[in-house]
Structure formats: C-alpha cells, structure tokens
Write a protein that binds this DNA or RNA. Structure first.
Lengths: 148, 148
DNA sequence: CTACGTGCAAAAAGTTTGCAATCGC
DNA sequence: GCGATTGCAAACTTTTTGCACGTAG
C-alpha cells in the first residue's frame, strides 16, 4: 500500500531552498540554490521533488502573469498575501496585507472565489542601486524583505 | 519608404472581433470569432494581424496568471480596470474600478510601477446556470457584462 | 505586381519522462 | 541487496514563427 519514502540529500536541498528563501522561487532559482548543498542535482530531480512537496502540501504554487510558476512555503501561502515582481532582477517578493471590499467591484451575479494582486516595479536593492551608481543587484541571494 | 498597407477581409475580421467583443479575447477566441466573417482564416494570420494591431496601438495585451495573453481594445485598456476569469467557461471579463492606497502595502524602498488585480470565480451566466439546472453556458457568444 | 494569407513544419520555452546507474535503508 | 531515487538527454506541450507558394488588393 504505502510507498516507501527515502530521504536524500537532494530532497533536503530542494525543501530547505524553498522553505528558507523567504520569497517565492522559480524552478531555476530552486535549482541554483539546491546546488549549494547538492552540487550534482539535476533539473529532473528538482521538478520531481517540487511536485511531491506540492502534493504533500508542504509548498504552494504562485502563479504570476506571463511567468512560469514559483513556489513558496505552504505556511506562508496560508496567510493571505500578494506578490511584487521586480522587473530589474526578476525576483518575486511577498507583500503582506490586502485590500478590502473587492466583491463590490464585480458586476451583479458574479461569484468571487479568489483574487490575486500582483505588483511590479523595482525592489529596494534595485531601486537603490540604480539611483546611486547603476550597479545591478541581479543575482544576489534573495532574502526576506517585509516591513511591519 | 512607407510600407504599403492593404486592407483585407481577414484583417477586418480580426480587428472587429477584438474591438467589438467587450471583453479580452484569447488568440483562439479571436480565431473562432474571425472565422464568422472570414471562414478560411488560419491561426498564422490571426497571430500576425494581432501583432500588427498591437504595434499600431489599436489593441493591448492582457496578461493573466498561468494563461496565454488575451487582447482588448486599446481604448478600453487606457481606462484603468481589472479582470475577472470565469473558471467555468474560461472567459475573461473587464471589471471597472480599482482599489486605493496600494503603495502603502509595499515594503520601504520598493518603487511601484504598476499592478494587476485578477479575480476568479463564476461569471453571471455560469453561476446562474449551475444554481438552476447545471446547464453549461460555455461557448456562448461573449457579451459586455458590466454594471454601473 | 507585390503585399497578404495559408498550411505545415518546426522553433522557443517550460515541463515531464525513459532508463541505466546509484545509493538509502 | 533491493528498489526507490537520481541525472542526462530526449520527448512533450503549448504558443508562436519561418517558409514556399497561391491569392488578391
């Protein structure tokens, strides 16, 4: 019945990459991050582990307009929030809070099941870099950026 | 110098399909709609005409999470609004109005360039159909659904 | 007379899979 | 040792484009 589950270095690498990122990661970002602790890990494995984590409800997909899915901790996803896409470094950040009275925007008869609010622009690092000397934060390690 | 421009039946079919739909259409929807007035039109032509209309700023792309682009009249796009995706019939409708004070949701230092608010659920036709007898509005001709 | 339209094949981009070698347990 | 797991390359999907040739403004 139950499928045997083995815990491998690769699985741990993928899991912690996502859970500790503090922001939604794309498959490629997960791959890069996971290579730090499992240098030989291939895309094949990243996709499979991500899928399994998703099935196990440990992580949740984040869909953005025009972009492939990203993934974040299911715990984070459970708290209603939205996303900011930095057009400069292509990273995505969580944005706490939301707006109210959305249903009233809809035409009569429409049943609201959910919504997604996506912001875009420049993240703190990129806007700072550009206004000072034009350096590209680009590939720097993502960190949690959130304020009270 | 100037490029000769010929007006063909196919071009007119694509243009009016989009401009008169009253909601954003996918390439496939445009294709279907255009076939009504230009029965032999191929997908290749739809893509090319849509691109040209986009370059000429007659229409504007609408990007939704996880979906291919749709297109709507540039005039409509010029008025700030958002979109509702019906999960039942897969059509997208315009939603007038917006919410305020968005910048204050962002972390300090983030520069906001734009945002997109996408709703999903059941449109009027689909929610009505399901609550009465379960009929599928599905492929019915799209019409403007908007209220004051 | 050329720009335009068409069908088809195949490129991009992203994701998934076949299968032999590997390595937890 | 056994079989789940891995990793590379290749297959797949979906959307978009290049080409060669016929059509039509």
């Amino acid at each position: 019945m139950s499928v045997e589950r083995r815990t491998t270095r690769q699985q741990r690498a993928v899991r912690s990459a996502i859970l500790e990122a503090g922001r939604p990661l794309s498959i490629e970002e997960i791959h890069e991050e996971a290579r730090a602790s499992a240098p030989t890990i291939g895309l094949r494995t990243v996709y499979r582990v991500v899928r399994r984590l998703e099935e196990d409800r440990e992580i949740a997909p984040v869909t953005l307009p025009g972009k492939p899915n990203r993934y974040e901790s299911a715990d984070v996803a459970a708290t209603h929030h939205h996303h900011f896409h930095c057009e400069s470094c292509d990273r995505v950040f969580d944005v706490r809070g939301c707006v109210s009275r959305l249903q009233q925007l809809l035409p009569t008869g429409f049943v609201l099941a959910g919504h997604e609010l996506t912001f875009w622009g420049a993240c703190e690092e990129c806007s700072t870099a550009r206004s000072t000397d034009g350096a590209e934060p680009g590939r720097s390690r993502g960190r949690q950026v959130d304020r009270a």
